[in-house]
Every structure is written in structure tokens, then in C-alpha cells.
Design a protein around this nucleic acid. Structure first.
Lengths: 369, 369
DNA sequence: AAGTCCGATGTGACCGATCACAATAGCCGA
DNA sequence: TCGGCTATTGTGATCGGTCACATCGGACTT
């Protein structure tokens, strides 16, 4: 073995197989002009010597890179983390290497830098563009770099070269809203995740359901991604007596909202119905268990990688990819609205059990930020 | 510019600065024998040409690699995800590139393969060895590869070359247990995360508190990492009337346990007190808000990277690293035990409000797995 | 004033792969 | 029988860095 680093190189394999190093290179890159017996000999030798192509050398020489860097503004929020998990699985399956780089929002220079540093070692990029930071990053990726993106919804004038994937959530948001209306609620409010385009698909689905039912559409609140935003916005909604149903942009927001309702003395689902979005693993264990719209981000991650790969493989077998579809999961956090006769007995809701306004908790949560 | 790939190379910089490429190499590697004026000229040229060293070439030539691969069995459980986040931040700060590879447990070949594939592109490795899969992976890393690990507790005969970091959680677990005892509970049960060594530090802290109080130590349940395990184990504990306080190995388990208690007709914290571990971001928004032991995994991730770096920098400034310390956070899920006189009125606890056994929910949760 | 040492810089080879191009062989038809 | 074509294989240069070693002054010894 020549390489003093312990691993076999392409020339070691060539020598052992009695061919030239170029032939070995052809074999590992599936080049057509290698005779079957030669190919087999080389493959056997590769196996025997436990040879693995060196990524650095390959990248340097301009060969296929087989590594991807994921750009995201966050790695621990459920949607992002689950997507990352799916991408990782897929890269592993295809022998790719996955890198991760967080892109800091709100600093144009930072975004450029992140993109640059992501391109350099990888060659291919996946952008999780659920939020503005991601979209900015996607926009800064030069056209020469293979890229795929996970987006909240298909863009109108989608650049054909920019392949993107998304979860079909419009119908499910509509269904969730209709579900609440069927339960007897006279309207449904919406605590949305932020959107830089003015409206998310889930928001449009919600709006459409209300409009089709001939109802006026309440002003949606853009509440951020985190539970604290849900709590804050929920606190405002809790003050309005006519709010009996809230569709939240994600499960964290829903949890915050439920807590805010609780602290305001309104119980869920007896007084207010709350539906989340995502179906985080814990959703079924909360009390009340969260009625929510399931989104399979892990599958989306896999699909996204597949899309990137099909772009890389330059036109071969561009099989139709199945995009995940969101799906309403009914549990406990939504139910019929309280009886109209009880509407004004705010501190003594339907069940007749007192739910005091939890002032201490309110103070604590405000303090903890 | 020579490089037809658009970026400047070390030779371009050399030509522009009027020095040899080797001098440029010396400058970017902080080699001492370069005269200050020359160094400055080169640095200016680098700036002007927007030169960035090529990772692939550097790795190929055996230079400093500046990239790390994180090996973990999971990337979305809170502790793992938060640690990853911390590592990512640190790598970004130091101009490193971070890769992630999931190591599948229970397949020795898979572990070896994961390690091998992690070493190849990176050169340095961080292992999140909170669980058995991680420990196995750590064990398979060849001694020649720079590595740092995050572990649940310092190992006894710790290999000096294997640098590892951990959170000091013993005292906090003890404090949490004592807190429950002070509230009046006659004993505290423990739903532990799994341990391959027989006992986690948090388990030892809990045990020690009980022993010092002269109490007998109940058999701990090793319940896995996920909420479903907490639910299952919690269901068993709920049947025992003398269980009034449970210390859970993490917050997810705590949530599952609370739900199990709820479904068994026992409310938290009125009938049973529950304390979690980790302080996940949502802990304060749950109802009841989780009393838990905070662990700063993000900080641990940063420390771990720092440790790896100090090993890489070969002996220079090995500053004492501050390990994170776990800390009890008191919220709502733990309180005084129910009055002894009410002990047997199981369906009508202290508050006099009926909490029916939630059979439907129980069935649903069992079905959803 | 000659010899020695050291700081600063330059030259050649190499890491492990790829690309472009050359070379060899075998087969066919004219 | 010979030229030409194609299928297969081999050779040299290259990617962008690093390492080992050579070179060259100038300061310091003796």
C-alpha cells in the first residue's frame, strides 16, 4: 500500500488489479467504456483492498462531489430538525456526506458568507427556505451551483432551474377550519407563522374555508415561530369573548396559545378550541392532546434530496416525486363551542368548575420571556 | 486569475503580492518566519483578491483540516439537537465546517461504517455519546483521529487522549429529589433514561438524596428516551397508590408520564408531583408548567468543540473549560402530596372535582403506539 | 576578517483523484 | 491485404494546497 495514511489509493488498486489508475477511475465512476471482465476484476480488487475514493482529491480534480451542505436559519425547531433528519437519511443512503450551516438572518453580508462557505466544501446545496432568512440564502446561491430548496409553497413564477419541494397544506388547513365550523364555531381565528409573501398556504386554506362558508375573515396575527409568540398572541385573543376557535401556525404556537388561554381562565377545549400544525411527536401526549395538521417534514427532506440528485444526474430518470400531503389529525384540543347561554359566565365555564385566572403563571411567563 | 473556477488560488495571490506561493501558505497558516511587512502585503492581497483557502486541496496535502463531523444516533431529540446547535455555532465562529452523520445503533458494521465515513471527509470528530450507540461509535474511532465526545458522566478510568465533556447533573438531581422530600413526599420514584453502565449520574443523585434522608430507594424504571416510554411507565406507576412523586429522566418522559397520570385519573401536581430533566423550550408553557432540571446542551456543545480544538492546537493555551452545571427550575408540576386522609378517595382528589379515568384517550394513545 | 548560525524566502515533489488526449488492439469492409 | 473505425486502455498534466529541503543575506561570535 503506497499511501502512508493507511488507506488504499486508486493507484494501489490499479497495481493490484494489473490495470492503469485511469481504468480504476472509470470503474468507480461508471464510465461505459470498460470491458465487463476488467470491470469485475477492478471491483473485486476494490472490495479486497477496502478502497474508498478520497473526497478531497475528487473534489480538487473536479469530479462528482457527493456531498451536500444544508443551509437553514435554525436546526432545532421541529420542522427544520425533522427535515434535516430526512435529508441526512437520504444522503446516508446514497453515500453522500452532509454538512450543516446555519445562516443568520437579517445580515446580508452574513447570508452571502454562509452561502459561500457552504458551496466551497460541498458543491451542492439544500436550502431550508421556510422563512425569510432561508429565502434570502436561496437567492444568494449562484446559478452555477446545484441547489434544491424546501419551501412553504410553490412560487408563482418559479425559476425552472431552481428545483424546490413543499408540503401540500392548503387543503388540510381548509379541512381543519371546516372541522371547527362543523363543530359549531361561528368563526375561526388564525395565529400564523410569519410569512414574507403576505400569506402562507395554510393561511389561504383557512381564509378560503371561511369565505366559502360566507363568514367574514378575522385579521390573522403573524405571531412568529415560537411558543412565546403563541402565548403573547393567545393572551390578546383570550380577551375577546367571541374567540372560540383558533387555528395555529404550528404546534409550539398552539401550546403557547393554550397556556395563554389557561392563564386567562379559559379552558381548552371547553371554552376555546385550538388546532395546531405539524403534529410534533409530543402532540398526542399533551393535555389536552393536540388536534393538529400533520406534516411529514422528514419525508419532505428525503424528497428534496431526491430532487437535488435528479438535477445532479442531469436529466436521467426524473421520476415523478411524491410530495407529502398534510393531514388533519383529530385529538382533544378542539370541540364544540360553549353554549351561548354560558358565554358571559366567563369565570364559570360549561363544566361548572372554577378556573381562576392564573396571575402568578402569567407573571412568570412574562418574566421568563 | 489562473483558476478557471473563478476563485483565486494561492499562486494568484503570490503573483499579485510579488512573493512565492510558499510565503502565502506561511501567512495563512500563521507560520512565525515571515517578516511583518511581507505578511501585511500578503494579507492585503488576500483581502483584495477575496482569496479563500480551498478545503479540498488543503485536506489532500495534509494540512490543517478545519472541519468536523458530528456522530450521533439521533438529531431531533432535544439534548442532541441542542448540542448540535451549540457545536454548529462554535464551528461557524472558528471558520470550521460541520458535517453530521447519524450512527445507527445495534449494528456493529453500521457503526464502523459510519465512523469511517465520518473520518474520511473531516479529519476530526465529535461524538454525542449520550447513549449506547454513541459510546459504541466513540469506541470505534481509531486512536489517530482527533476526537472529542459529549458524555453523560465522566468515565472512571478515562483514557487521557480521549477528551470528553459532560454536564454536572448529580447535584441538581439530588436537589430536585430533596425539593420533593421537603414538600412532604415520603419517597420519590424515578423514571430514568436508559443507561448502559447501570446508572446515570442523575440516578445516583436521586438515590443519594433518598439514602441520606434514610428512605428506602424504589426500583428505578429504565424507560427509554421518548414520551411514549414515559407514558407506558407512568401508567404502571399510576396504579400504585403510594406513588406521589416522580423524577423523570427528561422532559419528554415527564410529559408522557403526566399524561399517563391524567388518564389514570390522577392530576398533576395535586395528586402526583412530577419533575423533568432538560428544561426544553416548551417546558414553561405546558399545563402544568414543568418543574425541571435545566441542562444547557448548547453550551455543552460549544465546550466540546473548544475541547476538540485545544487538542488539535497541540498543547497551546489549554485553558480550563467551564462545564455547564444543571440547575433546578421550579414551576408548577411539583407540589405538596395530597392529604393522607384523602389517599383512598382516588376518584375524588383533594380539590373535590371529579377527574374521570380517561379511557378513550388511553385507548387512542396505545393505538398510536 | 572569516566562520557560524538563524531568520526569511524560494523551489521541487507530492497528496489522490480527474480530464484531455494518445495509443493500442480488434473488427469490418473495400 | 490494407486503411479506417470503434472499443478499450494508458500517459501526462492538472486541481490547490502542504511538506522537505535549498538558498541567501545579515548579525553575531571568535
Amino acid at each position: 500500500m503506497t499511501g502512508h495514511r493507511g488507506t488504499a489509493s486508486i493507484r494501489d488498486v490499479a497495481r493490484a488489479a494489473g490495470v492503469s489508475y485511469q481504468t480504476v477511475s472509470r470503474v468507480i465512476n461508471d464510465h461505459p467504456s470498460v470491458s465487463p471482465p476488467t470491470r469485475q476484476t477492478v471491483l473485486d480488487t476494490i472490495e479486497r483492498l477496502e478502497y474508498r475514493p478520497n473526497r478531497a482529491a475528487r473534489a480538487l480534480a473536479g469530479g462528482p462531489v457527493q456531498s451536500v451542505t444544508v443551509l437553514a436559519s435554525n436546526t432545532s425547531l421541529y420542522g427544520f430538525a425533522a427535515a434535516l433528519e430526512g435529508i441526512e437519511e437520504a444522503t446516508r443512503e446514497f453515500g453522500f456526506v452532509m454538512g450543516v450551516r446555519v445562516v443568520e438572518p437579517d445580515t446580508p453580508a452574513g447570508v452571502r458568507d454562509a452561502v459561500e462557505r457552504a458551496i466551497e466544501p460541498a458543491g451542492a446545496i439544500i436550502v431550508i427556505a421556510f422563512d425569510k432568512a432561508g429565502v434570502d440564502a436561496l437567492a444568494s446561491v449562484p446559478a452555477t451551483v446545484p441547489v434544491a430548496a424546501m419551501v412553504p409553497a410553490p412560487t408563482e413564477g418559479e425559476h425552472p432551474a431552481r428545483s424546490s419541494v413543499w408540503i401540500d397544506e392548503y387543503a388540510a388547513a381548509k379541512e381543519a377550519t371546516n372541522y371547527l365550523l362543523r363543530l359549531g364555531h361561528t368563526t375561526v381565528h388564525h395565529l400564523s407563522i410569519p410569512s414574507w409573501t403576505g400569506a402562507t398556504k395554510r393561511m389561504l386554506g383557512w381564509r378560503s374555508a371561511l369565505q366559502e362558508a360566507g363568514l367574514s375573515v378575522p385579521k390573522p396575527l403573524l405571531a412568529g415561530w415560537e411558543a412565546s409568540w403563541g402565548y403573547e398572541a393567545g393572551g390578546k385573543l383570550a380577551k375577546k369573548r367571541d374567540v372560540t376557535a383558533v387555528l395555529c401556525g404550528n404546534d409550539d404556537i398552539a401550546v403557547g396559545c393554550i397556556r395563554a388561554m389557561h392563564d386567562a381562565g379559559r379552558s381548552v377545549p371547553e371554552d376555546v378550541s385550538i388546532i395546531g400544525f405539524d403534529d410534533v411527536p409530543l402532540a398526542q401526549f399533551y393535555t389536552p392532546a393536540l388536534t393538529t395538521v400533520r406534516q411529514d417534514f422528514k419525508a419532505l427532506g428525503r424528497v428534496c434530496f431526491a430532487k437535488l440528485l435528479s438535477g445532479l444526474a442531469n436529466g436521467t430518470r426524473e421520476q415523478r416525486l411524491r410530495y407529502p400531503v398534510a393531514q388533519l389529525v383529530i385529538r382533544e384540543s378542539a370541540g364544540p363551542p360553549p353554549k351561548p347561554s354560558h358565554r358571559h359566565a366567563t369565570t364559570l365555564p360549561a363544566h361548572g368548575r372554577a378556573v381562576p385566572v392564573n396571575k402568578r403563571a402569567f407573571a412568570r411567563l412574562s418574566k421568563e420571556k
